[in-house]
């Protein structure tokens, strides 16, 4: 092999190679970063991985620039629309209802992902049954205490077993920045469908287009990217 550095003064494009190597590292990061993150998350546990740059990490978004502050004692959830019996539920009312727990990755449409997020809440289907949603109802709309965000699900989506009105996250009351004390959680869809600071549920005869959907996101925000009313592959991890 010819030693290209045979003469001490000879210059070779080492710097250029370093430069291109770094660019290749960046490209590899885009291509394989998701798998590396999952691997590290599984090896270290998501708590430790969250300390690393680029690790599991919630980015807190707010449409209005502030977070509504609602205490659990003042919290009220208004359920109305095409129902036999409109109701207003307090935080304690929700706690008294049958609940389920979900452990699921929280996936934002913009790319970040937090694995194994623990939620506890009342299945939306139970609340709809409780208030007696009319059989002709087509969709359910959701309002937020921030006064700006709105969301909607088709009536079938709203009846999915894992769609919950969540009041606990990681075993404690959902914090203010995560949309507490009560938020919607739609685990099989991108995070924007899981409306924060849930203030109202309205059973409708048409599906309203929510805030993020008005800004171009799919109304049916399934995690696999499908945009139909039903998800063709409902068993996403």
């Amino acid at each position: 092999m010819v030693d290209e550095f045979a003469v001490n003064g000879t210059k070779t494009p080492v710097g250029r190679r370093m430069f291109l190597g770094l660019l290749a590292l960046g490209a590899a990061g885009v291509a394989f970063g998701a798998s590396v993150q999952n691997f590290v998350g599984n090896k270290l546990g998501s708590g430790l991985a969250s300390l690393l740059p680029g690790g599991d990490h919630f980015r807190i978004y707010s449409i209005t620039g502030t977070y509504p502050s609602i205490s659990t004692t003042k919290y009220r959830l208004k359920v109305s629309g095409l129902v036999d019996q409109p109701m207003t539920l307090s935080y304690a009312d929700l706690q008294a209802l049958p609940s389920i727990e979900i452990v699921k990755a929280f996936q934002c449409v913009t790319g970040w992902r937090v694995p194994n997020v623990h939620w506890k809440g009342v299945p939306l289907s139970h609340i709809l049954q409780m208030v007696g949603a009319h059989s002709g109802a087509v969709a359910v709309s959701f309002d937020s205490y921030d006064g700006a965000d709105t969301e909607s699900l088709s009536i079938d989506q709203a009846h999915l077993a894992d769609v919950i009105v969540a009041y606990e996250m990681y075993g404690a009351t959902v914090s203010r920045e995560h949309g507490g004390p009560v938020r919607l959680v739609v685990p099989e869809m991108y995070g924007y469908k899981s409306l924060k600071w849930l203030s109202g549920i309205r059973v409708m005869d048409e599906q309203l287009v929510g805030y993020w959907e008005q800004n171009g996101y799919p109304v049916n925000g399934w995690l696999d990217g499908s945009t139909g009313l039903t998800n063709p592959s409902p068993n996403l991890s």
């Binding site: 960046g26 990061g29 885009v30 291509a31 394989f32 970063g33 998701a34 798998s35 590396v36 993150q37 740059p53 680029g54 690790g55 990490h57 996936q107 449409v109 913009t110 790319g111 970040w112 992902r113 171009g216 995690l223 990217g225």
Partner: peptide, 24 residues
Amino acid sequence: ILQWFRFFPVSWREGATVTHDFFA
């Protein structure tokens, strides 16, 4: 990729997030 994410598959968006954070 993070800003105009709609044109990229979700695994790229995740990778771009990780890479952007790491280099930051």
